[in-house]
Each structure stands twice: as structure tokens, then as C-alpha cells.
Design a protein around this nucleic acid. Structure first.
Length: 351
DNA sequence: AACTCGGGGCC
DNA sequence: GGCCCAGAGTT
């Protein structure tokens, strides 16, 4: 590990640091660090930068988050994905509101939603602890610097990354080192086409000297991919409300969406089943399709439209009417479906 | 150790 | 298209 030193990294970071709303001076407000780090789990910073301010406006303090209902918290997470994070964040807020903040990573890691990475990050950025948060960036940098033949999230590579960061921070004892490492990984030592020409450590990097920096870490084993077809039913009443149903199993468990049929069979028949379950007599008609990706699934959604029931605003079991702006736990899929429904209506297709 | 869980950005 | 992202929980 030898000649790789923190100095060049910190010098580079001082010139190339990106501005993010959670990057306030150290030590940071633990609540801000918490929300940012949970959102950043498996989510690119540019994406979090869009939704982080909205969430903090909705829940400015940990006590307000703890006082909210779980559904309100999940609704504020809409569009971020991995909604289990929102539920765990809510549980965590209630524990901390009741008992106060643990200040060490070894205690933080026992809280819901806090794994080794997030606990170390909160401890470092909010409380000054110098235990390295080991994330994908640090692991990738470590794999390249030392030509480690491991896949990204293997225990062996994580251990080497932890040891490397610990040596670095020993010479410059500031949590800024950890943020600089992540920034280098996110903007220079990137997964594909790393920018070795501007890397402060290129001359010390085994992967760079070997000529193929992107060969490290080793590629992940291929995932099996599914390409299911879902059927969705769009029903809008005279008040402009849309019929929604809560999903009772993953994926998207607990979220409110237009009624979905996620089985197999003839699409028109599946749409008729949805209409029947919703207590509708109208015959659904196809209005269009869209693609949606979640984890290893590449989903085609066929959207059908059906007329609302006349008169009474009935809500069959598990269904409810809601205006598009209603604060319900939902997915970005809901917005895609709404856009498709309104496009098709604008083109004059039959309701 | 292997799976599951969203969604978007980037090639 | 395929790959990956400031991971954690469950089996």
C-alpha cells in the first residue's frame, strides 16, 4: 500500500469538490447526514440531489419525521426506489427521537436501516469518528490501485478497502478523506472509462500501469433477467380522481398505483379481471404501453382505460379514488402511467 | 453466500 | 441493450 498518500487526493478534492446540499461544514447535523446517506444507498448522488431538498422541506427535523406516519414518509420517498429504505428510516427516526443519537458507528449500526457503511458515514461526518465508510467507490479504487482480483462487493475486497482507508486517514485524520475518496470514485475512478489522465494517484495505480484500469474489479456474475408484461387499468371519474389500489406483495409492496395485473395471460382478459375486481361494468380498451425497469426486470406495461361507475363513488375492497396530487406512497411508475393516459386522451382516443 | 429490492444515467 | 450506483435485510 506503500506510496499512495492522502496529500494529492485532498489537493485534488479541494479543486474538484461538487456542491451538494448535504455537504455542509464538519461536523454536520446528524439528521441531514442520515437522510442523505440513506438516500445515497445504491443511488447516484445526482439523483439524490434532486429529491433530497424536497424531502427535507417535508420533514425538516428528525422529530417531525418521527411524528409522521409511515405512509407519509414513503410518499416523500416517491421516485427514489428501494422504498424499504423509507420505512426503515422512519423506524430509525422514532428510536432516535425517543432515546437520542448514539455517537459511535458500533452503536449506530444496530439501528434499523443502518448497515456498516451508513453507520460509519454518520459517525464520521456528524460525530468525527474516523472509521472508514466502505462503499462501492472505495472498493473500486482499492481494486484498481492494488490490482485486486475480486468482484466489487466481495468480503475480501471490502476488507482491503477498509484497511487502505484506515492507513490513509491515519496520516490526515479528517473525515474529509472519506468524502474525497467517494468523490474520486464517482467522478474520476468511474466504473467505465476511468479518467486516469486527471487522477492524482495514476502513477501509483497498479491497474493503470497494467494498461487496463477498467478490468478491476472483476465483472459481476450475470443476472437472470425477466421480461414480464403487466396490465394496468386507468379509471378517472368526473372529479378528476383516479382509481388506485395498494400492492400487497413485492415488488413495489405497499405502494398505491392504478390497479395492476402482474400475472400471465391474454391482456384484454386480464384487464377485464381488473375491471371486475374494481366493481366496474365497462369494457376496458387498450390505450398504449410503456417500459419500466425495476432491479432485474424489464417490464412492459399495457395500459387500458375504462369508464368510471355512474353516480355513486364506490370504493371496492382495497381500492380508493385519489387526485393525482394526493400524498400517497407511490412509485414513479404512477407518473409514467398518468402521462401515457393523458397523452392518449389528448390524441382523442375513446375513453 | 445468494437473493431481493427501484429507478435513472451512462455508454 | 447492459452495467452500475455513497447498501441493507432476509433466507
Amino acid at each position: 500500500m506503500s506510496s499512495v498518500e492522502a496529500g494529492p487526493l485532498l489537493a485534488w478534492f479541494s479543486q474538484h469538490r461538487r456542491r451538494f446540499p448535504w455537504r455542509t461544514p464538519f461536523p454536520r447535523d446528524p439528521y441531514l447526514v442520515l437522510v442523505a446517506e440513506v438516500m445515497l444507498q445504491q443511488t447516484q448522488a445526482s439523483r439524490v440531489a434532486v429529491l433530497f431538498p424536497r424531502f427535507l422541506e417535508r420533514f425538516p427535523t428528525l422529530d417531525l419525521l418521527a411524528a409522521a406516519s409511515e405512509d407519509e414518509v414513503v410518499a416523500a420517498f416517491a421516485g427514489l426506489g428501494y422504498y424499504r429504505r423509507a420505512r426503515l428510516l422512519h423506524r430509525l427516526a422514532r428510536e432516535v427521537a425517543a432515546r437520542g443519537w448514539p455517537r459511535s458507528s458500533s452503536e449506530l449500526v444496530r439501528l434499523p436501516g443502518m448497515g456498516p457503511y451508513t453507520a460509519a458515514a454518520v459517525a464520521a461526518f456528524a460525530f468525527g469518528e474516523l472509521t472508514p465508510p466502505v462503499d462501492g467507490n472505495l472498493c473500486r479504487i482499492t481494486a484498481r490501485l492494488f490490482a485486486v482480483n475480486s468482484v466489487l462487493r466481495s468480503p475480501t475486497l471490502s476488507a482491503q478497502a477498509h484497511a487502505f482507508a484506515r492507513k490513509l486517514v491515519a496520516t490526515h485524520p479528517t473525515p474529509e478523506i472519506f468524502e474525497a475518496l467517494m468523490e474520486l470514485g464517482a467522478t474520476v475512478c468511474t466504473p467505465q472509462q476511468p479518467q486516469c489522465a486527471i487522477c492524482p494517484w495514476a502513477t501509483h495505480c497498479a491497474a493503470f500501469r497494467g494498461g487496463k484500469p477498467s478490468a478491476f474489479p472483476l465483472p459481476q456474475p450475470a443476472r437472470t433477467k425477466e421480461t414480464p408484461t403487466w396490465v394496468a387499468l386507468w379509471v378517472e371519474n368526473a372529479a378528476g380522481e383516479v382509481l388506485l389500489r395498494q400492492l400487497t406483495e413485492p415488488p413495489l409492496l405497499g405502494l398505491w398505483l392504478p390497479p395492476l395485473h402482474r400475472g400471465d395471460g391474454d391482456p384484454q382478459y386480464r384487464a377485464a379481471i381488473l375491471a371486475q375486481e374494481a366493481g366496474l361494468v365497462a369494457n376496458p380498451s387498450l390505450v398504449g404501453s410503456l417500459r419500466h425497469h425495476i432491479t432485474h426486470r424489464r417490464i412492459t406495461v399495457l395500459l387500458f382505460r375504462a369508464a368510471p361507475p355512474l353516480g355513486v363513488r364506490e370504493e371496492a375492497n382495497g381500492f380508493r379514488w385519489a387526485s393525482p396530487s394526493a400524498l400517497l406512497p407511490t412509485s414513479s411508475l404512477a407518473e409514467k402511467l398518468a402521462r401515457l393516459a393523458h397523452r392518449s386522451r389528448a390524441k382523442g382516443e375513446a375513453p
